[in-house]
Design a binder for these strands. Structure first.
Lengths: 195, 195
DNA sequence: GCGTTACGGTAACATTCGTTACGACCATAA
DNA sequence: TTATGGTCGTAACGAATGTTACCGTAACGC
């Protein structure tokens, strides 16, 4: 097997393996051996790239956030209006296809793993607060004349709604198909006066 | 102790111990020994009440659902109007105090544990579909003249919003205080025309 | 050419897990 | 009292886990 170019690329590949195991086998089976098997290597490589299992999980968690942030920034930059940007950014947070469904399951797994891990919960809070600020900025841009508390309440409602429906759809894809999620989002945006 | 009467009570106590461990130590530390320690007994009692660890988790999961359902039904019965019933039922699904925050953490833990467990995910889907139907019934009662697809979209938005904000608040209570959650819910109900 | 070194696989380590076997205890009935 | 059935704690087992030590190998220096 041709080895990756550098150590950073291997760390990224191992983090992707962490996501795969988390999405397909769950948190309880997220072992070093399972990650190595998913990455197509042995535990030796894993333990040479990361000092221990927690460091591997922390790296995978941060990479997950960085990747989503890049995707969100690209969507925001490509939007033609503030309201289109808001909708596009919110839409990618739902679980509307196989890929975003997997991301939602991984997100849930990391959140459950963070319950007893101070560093993981700290990363979650930093990333989530940044995500919330982005939503508030997008709502403020889409409704420039709103008072700040209304912006905050509506932005919170929107991010809570999308994260919630992503969890619901991840756990029961048949009951929450993509079009129902989209209709839910559009109905909410219209009700808030952001359609 | 009389055998048949106390077995059920012991099973319930052990399930509460499962919730405690799940809320305070997370899914990775949810071992039979930790549950026994939280319940103030040894692993012997646990393994005499349940054939194995999975049965213990399944029982705790079902008891969690039954308890919340009873609480929700009491709130619904005590409400003075359909809109008050809707708001009260939605409100209890958020994480606005220590108790509901713990419940949300436990809910997240079971959801993460259900990823690779067919029986757990089946229970989640049954319970969640019932919960969704209840929300749709409450929305329909609060807005009798709405078409069914609007009822569905709004009910989905509301349950997704409350479950989402419960997860957000459970992971970061300082950033999502109770009054912000309440304002979020009231703003959403008002925007939907259900205030 | 040869030695050096970093890389990665193999195998073993101690620990912890779920589970099982066994025995002490205790109430009740003969 | 003694026998008995059920309850539950104790201790052990095999399997799996995170981690460490060791060893082969291939590339690059001289």
């Amino acid at each position: 097997m041709s080895p990756p170019a550098n150590r950073a690329a291997q760390g990224e590949a191992l983090s992707r393996a962490v996501w795969d195991v988390l999405a397909q086998q769950g948190l309880e089976k997220l072992t070093v051996r399972a990650v190595a098997a998913a990455a197509g290597c042995t535990t030796g490589l894993v333990m040479h790239r990361f000092p221990n299992r927690r460091a591997l999980l922390l790296h995978a968690r941060q990479l997950l956030h960085d990747t989503t942030r890049q995707r969100v920034e690209a969507l925001e930059a490509a939007a033609t209006s503030p309201r289109a940007a808001l909708r596009a950014v919110l839409r990618q947070g739902m679980a509307t296809d196989q890929e975003t469904t997997n991301w939602s399951i991984v997100w849930l797994g990391f959140l459950a793993a963070a319950v007893a891990d101070a560093e993981l919960i700290g990363m979650h809070r930093r990333n989530n607060r940044a995500w919330r600020q982005r939503a508030e900025r997008l709502v403020a841009a889409a409704a420039p004349d709103w008072p700040v508390d209304q912006v905050g309440a509506v932005a919170l409602g929107l991010i809570a709604m999308t994260e919630g429906v992503a969890a619901l759809a991840a756990a029961d894809p048949a009951a929450y198909p993509a079009d129902q999620q989209e209709r839910m989002l559009d109905a909410a945006l219209a009700a808030y006066g952001l359609g």
